[in-house]
Amino acid sequence: MSALKEILVPLMGRPLCAGFPSPADDYVEEALDPARLIVTNPASTFMWRVVGRSMIGAGINDGDYAVVDRSLTPRADDVVVAIIDGLPSAKRVVRLRGGRLALDFDHPDMGPLVLDEASEAMIWGVVTWSLTPHRPAPR
């Protein structure tokens, strides 16, 4: 397995530096990786797309990506992907006056969300980030 070994280049410094060694060599860090900022638990993190405007109060626009981490336990004020009667939607977890948690829209003109008595709701995962493209790629 070593027949094709490539030449190893040192991580820091320049082996053939004609002038002075770079003064930055002592300060080299790993390249910044935005993915590691937004995905802290890769095994439990999934990307969703949010379609609709009922969550603009949470800063989530129509067409944004949502980063959803299933390892987190939902709590009040979280934005979540909820499954209501089999259909996935983005919702805000709110605390009701009695202390119970409920799901709601987050839109100045909408809500509160009233679910049918027979409705079944469960939380699929907690939205940790949403990504809004400010210069959308041409389609």
């Binding site: 999934f46 990307m47 797309r49 949010v50 379609v51 609709g52 990506y65 992907v81 829209f105």
Partner: peptide, 14 residues
Amino acid sequence: AYTTRLSETPIATA
């Protein structure tokens, strides 16, 4: 390919 392609992620309505 829900988990591996950006163009095929699952969709949540809002």
